[in-house]
Design a protein around this nucleic acid. Structure first.
Lengths: 153, 153
DNA sequence: TATAGTCCCATTGACGCCCATATAATCCCA
DNA sequence: TGGGATTATATGGGCGTCAATGGGACTATA
């Protein structure tokens, strides 16, 4: 199973269109999908994307009671509500709806970031900053681990 | 199987008509349905909708003879009693009956919210508020999950 | 005849589809 | 190995179609 790997920065044109990186398209084409499903990430100022199959799989996991739930899975419902199916145009682009542009503070460029089974779309400068912070945190954790080992060992 | 995904806000005109979003119509057309089945949601101030096929599936699950005192049965009958079949007009619109307008506090605009196998129709501002609450709940759940993992791990 | 419901047609504005170009990557053959 | 040819990708722009919406005509019912 191919997965979403790497970071690619592409341009957003006046119509809100952006090319999905060819390697990402290849992942989706392998599943016979001709578009992506996107939704605002719950964890940061970015858009999360995946194949529509992944969303359908989420639907399957919901109880099939004809009697209206009990909204037991708030996250799933939030995702359904805020997700959009974005089909490719002839050139492999998608159109980012206004809500998404706003949510991720996207204007002229968007960075596609592979996350394995999913990917994210970031404002390139926000991404850089977020990654710097992640690096700091990782280094701090590593340092803490070394200290802990020193004590116990 | 396609499912109802995304949120779309459309206008309600003086005749109580509202366009069903094209993506939702596509889901129904795939089942050869030319209308929707709607009923007041039991869980909130909104209208719930689905294909007529789903209502028929509900009928199948009901026992021939209502079992006195069984909640499920009472709920199902409530839904049947208040459900309406709303056919599309030539432009893909439905007419919202007065009871539904009242139940969901609908006036000038209605928000169609995809829920996977079903969808809901909300007053847009009520929806925003309900989603904010749902978001809070989702974040709390998520936090609880993280804590639990920390302990066990 | 009034009122409500249904059907049909018109408008407009957005979106999908298509084609065109440029840059980059790959391949092929000398 | 180098140069040219071919393909693929990323991007720009135009045009036609369809979706969303407004409004009028027709029918049925009381």
């Amino acid at each position: 199973m191919k997965s979403f790997i790497g970071t690619f920065v592409n341009k957003i044109d006046a119509k809100g269109r952006i090319s999905v990186p060819a390697p990402f398209r290849a992942v989706l084409q392998a599943k016979n999908l001709s578009g992506v499903a996107c939704y605002p990430a719950l964890t940061g100022p970015c858009i999360e994307g995946c194949g529509l199959d992944r969303i359908e799989a989420m639907v399957e996991t919901l109880p099939d009671q004809p009697i209206p739930g009990l909204d037991e899975d708030a996250i799933a419902h939030l995702i359904f509500a805020s997700a959009r199916e974005l089909p490719f145009d002839g050139g492999g682009r998608i159109v980012l709806p206004a809500e998404f542009l706003k949510k991720a503070a996207l204007s002229d460029h968007g960075a596609f970031v592979g996350k394995g089974r999913t990917f994210q779309i970031w404002n390139p400068s926000d991404l850089e900053q977020a990654q710097a912070e992640m690096f700091e945190r990782a280094m701090a954790e590593r340092q803490a681990m070394i200290e802990a080992r020193k004590e116990s060992g």
